[in-house]
Design a protein around this nucleic acid. Sequence first.
DNA 1: CGTCCAAGGTGACAAGGTCACAGAACTCTG
DNA 2: CAGAGTTCTGTGACCTTGTCACCTTGGACG
Lengths: 218, 218
Amino acid sequence: MTDWIERFEGLAALPKAIRDVLVNRSQVVHAPAGHIIFGPGKSPDYLLLLLEGTVRVHQTSETGREIVLYRVEAGQSCVLTTACLLANEEYSAQGEAETDVEAVAIPRTVFDELMAQSGEFRTFVFNAYSRRITDLFRVIDEVAFGRIDVRLAARLIAMGAGLREIKATHQQLATELGTAREVISRQMHEFQRRGWISQSRGTLVLTDRAALSGLAGH
Amino acid sequence: MTDWIERFEGLAALPKAIRDVLVNRSQVVHAPAGHIIFGPGKSPDYLLLLLEGTVRVHQTSETGREIVLYRVEAGQSCVLTTACLLANEEYSAQGEAETDVEAVAIPRTVFDELMAQSGEFRTFVFNAYSRRITDLFRVIDEVAFGRIDVRLAARLIAMGAGLREIKATHQQLATELGTAREVISRQMHEFQRRGWISQSRGTLVLTDRAALSGLAGH
DNA sequence: CGTCCAAGGTGACAAGGTCACAGAACTCTG
DNA sequence: CAGAGTTCTGTGACCTTGTCACCTTGGACG
């Protein structure tokens, strides 16, 4: 298994020697859906590069409400945790395998060596940071200033891309947006009234994606 | 001017050779209060280490409302911009000198060299990242789940630390929290009614810090 | 002194979050 | 298959926060 590097845009250009270090000193690991990959009091000792599956990173409030901060998809890395990894600090956020996950685990010592040896690797890491931080800024903007109907429509469009139906409860949608279940129920009811979606327990179908996209701002 | 390094906790421990690189290839720069240090379409070419003053990093919504994301104080670095610096991506956030500012500017090439050469420097950088990202997580938590009176009380306590009176308009306080001016006006009126503060145009005095702290959750 | 303008106050209303509870739809088990 | 228990969804009442429109006040300055 040496060709997983090809799946990572920023790594494919690494010199042979560096790639060898990466391949030889990392290992491919698996986690089942639902597994908590990192969280309060559980900082990972590895930088993960996702080969398959997605990791959902979310935060829980004192009152139990949750919000999804971002997702790590196949071909991306769990890079924000490296700050914690090298700095020994802990985040209040939690990373959970949303599906069964296959990933390359790079030990912190190897990560540190690569940061020292390879400008391309540094670029890869900072690029990944950049993307995540941009995500966080977007979340702050949406939560602070966005309307819930717009945000919900956008999320439905994103979740439903390429799918005939979406499997999700109202509670799960509420967690996506950091709001309450009742708020989602009411919005969904309104979308249904307008004929934009149809739903049954646990699943929903987007019957008018154009209208949803329009509300979401294209 | 070689002793500024002492002011940065994570840098004081660097080996002599690395410190010399830092000192010789960076320069001390100044910016007046109000100067926009970075922002949309204006990515900095330097990593800044603040010697004096503070930089406020904030984000503006489409509708013109603003929210403060974090502040960089003397002894800290504008490190989140390095991701943008190395990755050539742009943030939607804006960094503005809140006071007259004195800072050490490290060119991106030197930053990259130091990342390669010094583990201590890497630790410094990732520590700084860690702190900022934790700040962002806290902002998300507060905006998504926090009550406005609690957040305002906490901010007043923080702003008033060591001061007899605070110079700030209701609009400025609103920007701190990402809310509307009217909301602040009403809360301030309520705090005043309870005898916790007294205010006049543009200034306010905390007359019962204990009560405010209590509401803020200590 | 009058004019102008930024800061602050206020009421009416809309949007979103909280609470309590009801009913509907699945699951499990006997 | 019936009945019990659980999970999911619907709903009304109420509270907090954000929006809008408009007003008053306090200074600055000519």
